[in-house]
């Protein structure tokens, strides 16, 4: 037993190169993540400012238990916003993954390298447009009197649609807009994974006379499955966080559409606009983190049960 500390030192010494490698990252995590982390207790306090500084303010503020969380649960709206957030994100994750993988495979298969490059650049563009710009663009389609869609409808003799007051269209609109903006960007990871696959697999398949389709199904997809699973588990962690711009700017903050566009993030934003309470906004963040955390653990557990190799941890 007296060799304990010595052995520990020796372990340290044996791992010193790898320890040095994680050093910069660890310093960063401590400074930018762990140092601020205790601040999350604000969620359980009635934050009152104290002139002795932030720490004193936290310490001297009263504990209020879960009071800051109440507004997220109290009314039936709370159910609606949670439902919206979860459903939209679930659809985004599933369709987003499928389409990103599909696009990655297609781009990879396109024979003309030059065209593939051009396509990829094009698909990337929406990622650089802010949601405000996207909302102008969507508006140019959906505007009641000048919108492209209504003009098309008029051309065919149909009645114009009041797009911004009809809730039934918005789930589709939001999904399409989100996929449109994200798929090009999302496909990059999968493309990298596909290109990174060891060529000898394909050569072996070729010799065995496998068709392209078989190659895709039997080699490509299984090879990139670990990445897909990881991205999926990670996305699950964010399933409680909605993209504010998508749900606020794109529907132009239209009240009539709230039943299908109000998500946790927009709800919190509107609710705290009047009072701007730090405790309540921290509470919302914590709520989203904890649910995400639980979901990630659960998903990972399930993945682990199915295939230990592919689990995240």
């Amino acid at each position: 037993m007296e060799h304990g500390p010595m052995r520990w030192l020796r372990t340290l010494n044996r791992n010193k190169a790898l320890l040095l490698m994680v050093l910069p990252g660890t310093v960063w995590f401590i400074l930018f993540c762990y140092l601020p982390m205790p601040g999350a207790v604000i969620a359980f306090k009635d934050y009152r400012y104290d002139t002795d500084g932030f720490l004193a303010s936290i310490l001297r503020s009263d504990w209020v238990g879960f009071k800051n969380f109440e507004y997220l649960f109290k009314t039936e709206d709370a159910f609606i916003i949670v439902r919206n957030t979860l459903l939209y994100n679930a659809v985004f994750i599933v369709l987003g993954t499928v389409l990103s993988v599909l696009v990655a495979i297609l781009v990879n298969e396109i024979a003309s390298k030059k065209m593939a490059k051009i396509y990829q650049t094009g698909m990337f563009l929406p990622h650089f447009l802010s949601w405000v710009i996207v909302s102008y663009f969507v508006f140019s389609f959906l505007s009641v009197d000048k919108g492209v869609l209504n003009q098309v409808l008029k051309f065919f003799g149909a009645d114009p649609v009041f797009w911004y007051s009809e809730t039934k269209y918005w789930p589709y609109i939001l999904v399409i807009v989100n996929l449109w903006k994200g798929v090009g960007y999302g496909s990059v990871v999968y493309l990298a994974a596909i290109v990174g696959i060891d060529k000898s697999y394909f050569e072996a398949a070729m010799i065995d006379g496998a068709s392209k389709w078989q190659q895709i199904r039997k080699i490509m997809i299984p090879m990139i499955t670990p990445i897909i699973v990881i991205m999926f588990i990670l996305a699950i962690g964010g399933i409680f966080r909605a993209d504010f711009g998508l749900f606020y700017q794109v529907p132009r903050d239209t009240g009539a559409l709230y039943p299908v566009t109000n998500v946790i993030d927009t709800f919190v934003y509107r609710g705290l606009k009047v009072t701007g309470d730090i405790g309540m906004s921290t509470a919302a963040g914590l709520y989203q983190s904890v649910v995400g955390f639980v979901l990630v653990i659960a998903t990972n557990f399930i993945v682990r049960k199915i295939n230990k190799e592919q689990a995240l941890f």
Partner: peptide
């Protein structure tokens, strides 16, 4: 120390201290 440092990294994906504490740092 693989486990420890993996945890240090991945735990941060789930919890944050919020805006004001990060700002103070």
């Amino acid at each position: 120390f693989r486990g420890l440092f993996s945890f240090i990294a991945f735990f941060t994906m789930l919890f944050g201290g919020g805006l004001v504490p990060s700002y103070i740092v």
